[in-house]
Design a protein around this nucleic acid. Structure first.
Length: 293
DNA sequence: CGTTGAACCTGTTTGC
DNA sequence: TGCAAACAGGTTCAAC
């Protein structure tokens, strides 16, 4: 395990999806009656606005957009004459963010920065040791300004669109998969796993991939993400209190974090190199780097 | 357009 | 043994 690898969750698409599904069991129909903030609030876009607009809101729904979680809130008209309506609570878990629904008297873990007190004696808590996460409340229109620029959902993109997005680019395939403006939700782990399954070297250029390779990558990516979601993500623990099951996907990693270990397909030693500025694990035999990337 | 590196932050691991 | 440095992750920004 590389130094600093968090023992718990690495929120990429499957992990966020798992959290969203967990929150859906508890939040819709609940009212947020009070908001409490920890001392550090620098990860909140506008903490004052959060404190003013969220209390009293009814949670209508919870959804995922890429790696963002979106809580759809219904707010009533305020005394001051506001019209009420719909608000979006947009949350990014960053690297170490966790959202949990727990009893109001549950022990408070270190680095818990936000408490959404619910109307059923429980609390939605946001804990994030490294504070790489982000949170903001916004109108639907303003929320879209955050979510709008994001690229295609890896689970919904058609093979034709996937090919078009890749073959038109001279950037490395690793960089393209990680670019949230191209595909929303892919992170370092699932990118490496997808490339390993498709037998494509991470430093290959998008435009140089053959139609066959792109098709394999499309299938690999979807298969791996769906499998990871089915298993509850890569290593989430206690994500919604008693309902959370630890994720199990990490035991299925074939490339990520396996430097020096044998490739499950051919037995060659998995190598690690920096591609697109990120640690990249691949099999030098299965994932050949051609003379011309 | 594309790449690289730094910054943000803290817990864990590594190396001396 | 102990402490400091390196490192991990996602995103953004600046510089080339």
């Amino acid at each position: 395990m590389p130094a600093g690898t968090p023992a718990l969750l690495m929120p990429e698409l499957p992990e966020v999806e798992t959290v969203v599904r967990g929150l859906r069991l508890h939040l819709p129909g609940r009212r947020i009656v009070e908001l409490r903030l920890g001392k550090k609030t620098d990860f909140i876009d506008d903490a004052v606005a959060l404190g003013e607009r969220v209390p009293g809101a009814l949670v209508r729904g919870v959804r995922r957009h890429g790696k963002f979680l979106v809580l759809e809130l219904e707010v009533g008209a305020k005394d001051g004459g506001g019209v009420g309506g719909e608000l979006l609570l947009v949350i990014h878990l960053g690297m170490t963010g966790q959202l949990t629904v727990v009893a109001a008297d549950a022990e408070v873990k270190a680095h818990t920065h936000v408490f959404f007190v619910l109307d059923d004696r429980r609390e939605l808590r946001f804990c994030d040791p490294r504070r790489f996460g982000r949170m903001l409340v916004a109108s639907v229109v303003d929320g879209e300004k955050i979510l709008g620029p994001l690229g295609a959902d890896p689970l919904e993109v058609s093979e034709a669109d996937f090919r078009r997005l890749i073959s038109s680019r001279r950037a490395r395939i690793k960089a393209l998969l990680l670019d949230q403006r191209v595909f929303r939700g892919m992170g370092n782990i699932y990118t490496d796993e997808s490339l390993w399954r498709a037998k494509i070297h991470p430093a290959r250029l998008g435009a140089n991939l053959t139609g066959e390779e792109i098709k394999k990558l499309w299938r690999a990516m979807r298969g791996i993400l769906e499998e990871a979601i089915r298993l509850g993500g890569s290593s989430i623990s206690d994500y919604v209190g008693a309902d959370g099951e630890p994720g199990e996907f990490q035991i299925r990693h074939r490339a990520y974090d396996r430097e020096g270990k044998k490739c499950f397909r051919c037995g060659a030693k998995i190598r690690r190199m920096i591609v697109a500025g990120r640690s990249s694990y691949f099999c030098p035999k299965c994932q050949r780097a051609p003379r011309v990337l």
